[in-house]
Amino acid sequence: MRRVFWQGLKILVFIISLVPVSLLLYDAFTDQLGANPIETLHFRLGDWALRFLCLGLAITPIKKMTGIKELVRFKRLLGLYAFFYASLHFLVYICLDLSFSMDQLMDEIPKSPYIIVGLITYSLLIPLALTSTKKMQKRLGQKWRRLHRLVYLIAILAVVHYLWLTKIDITEPLIYMGVIGVLLGFRMIKFRGLQ
């Protein structure tokens, strides 16, 4: 019974996590993305990547505080959704914003360091997504744990990417920075406690 409940909840979370991308598709087909649709797609996908990253990072602290061990099941799901939204964010940039133009990328990169930070952040996510299966986890053993600690660096880089590109009103990136700071702080205390 318990098993069925958690299995059901996982399916529910899986479906709910598709809502943001469905809404974007709906807005795209009903011409509701506004005057600058590429920017809307790009920003909203980036926001969701960051939100899923935060949710994934929040699992362990919440598990520790509440003692609900089953929460661990959601970690990979949320992490993979962060990767999913980050991938769409990346693809919108390459395919729509740049229109696959290498010239344009070369013009933009030296001027916009946040693009490099974004690209690094995304490329760091790839090995984590590829090694997210149970099989890989077993095969890599201790190495897997170390590899997946990269997620903290990814979270920091993602916020730096956001903060750097913001023109003037940095309230939102600061909120993410705060959330990630708290979550990282929690982990640091935990690591200390283990020593």
Binding site: I38, E39, Q104, D107, Y114
Partner: peptide
């Protein structure tokens, strides 16, 4: 260019 982005193109 703007210090943080290129001005060569426009959306």
């Amino acid at each position: 260019s703007h210090p943080r982005w290129s001005q060569k193109r426009e959306r």
